[in-house]
């Protein structure tokens, strides 16, 4: 039974004959019955999701002042003034420690940055962009996007790909390559947004997960890459690389 039929049944848009046939199958097939129950839950959640979120936000906001852990926080006032007085003598020592800390941190950070950059460069390669078979109408735009992307002029490639996507919002390939280009151009949020929109796309979902992970590595937040790398199944082309990266991160 197709998902579309289940939707139609639950929405009451099947005709009488189809409805009674569906109900006969439903009575005879427990698996279908579970599917229908789940779809019912999903549709019901989808319907009230906004309102639930809003109501729960109010419960939490109002509840904030009744939360014992919030009430237990120390009061500001005289006590803090005394603390500041005591701290006065420690200020030169703290300043010296901070200065040393900043110097060491910048040294470590540049090393860490180099490490993550090289990790990204090593693992982030993609095949050259080729969109030309997809469209016959936008040839000039397509050629421009391909040229810019393949010559690694990512900011221009982003412009061209954005024009292509504006004319074909479902063009997953263009969305993927634009996401890649954004990340290569250090525009991480925009890149991840594109790639995340492909997580439901059967063709690109694992590649998208892989490159979202790499984007976190490139931006220096390797720990955030881990769930995306772990999500890549053994059947994916990126599985072996994902496992290698996970090993490196864990080391």
């Amino acid at each position: 039974m197709s998902e579309e039929t289940i939707h139609q049944y639950l929405e009451g848009s099947l005709d009488e004959q189809a409805t009674s046939a569906f109900e006969s199958s439903l009575a005879a097939d427990p698996q279908l019955a579970t599917q229908v129950e789940l779809m019912k839950e999903m549709k019901s959640y989808g319907k009230v999701q906004d309102q639930t979120e809003r109501a729960q936000r109010v419960i939490r906001d109002v509840g904030h002042k009744y939360n014992p852990s919030h009430q237990a926080k120390p009061q500001q006032g005289e006590q803090s003034k005394v603390k500041i007085k005591r701290l006065r003598y420690l200020i030169p020592a703290i300043a010296a420690i901070l200065l040393i800390g900043i110097i060491l941190n910048s040294l470590f950070q540049s090393t860490a940055q180099d490490d993550t950059s090289s990790l990204y460069a090593h693992y982030a390669e993609v095949t050259p962009l080729s969109l030309s078979t997809r469209s016959t109408e936008n040839n000039e735009l397509v050629t421009t996007a391909e040229e810019y992307f393949n010559s690694q002029d990512y900011s221009e490639a982003i412009h061209a790909l954005t024009s292509i996507i504006a004319q074909d919002v479902d063009n997953a390939k263009a969305i993927f390559y634009r996401g890649y280009a954004y990340i290569a151009d250090d525009q991480y949020e925009a890149g991840r947004k594109d790639l995340m929109s492909l997580l439901d796309n059967t063709l690109y979902q694992h590649t998208a997960s892989y490159h979202i992970a790499l984007s976190y590595i490139k931006s220096g937040s390797s720990s955030l890459a881990v769930p995306y790398l772990k999500e890549i199944p053994a059947s994916s082309n990126h599985h072996a690389q994902a496992q290698e990266i996970l090993k490196i991160i864990n080391e």
Binding site: E3, E4, H7, L38, M39, M42, L199, D200
Partner: peptide
């Protein structure tokens, strides 16, 4: 349909 399918798979 694609969204519902993706959601179901995650569930």
């Amino acid at each position: 349909f694609a969204c519902f399918e993706a959601w179901r798979k995650r569930i």
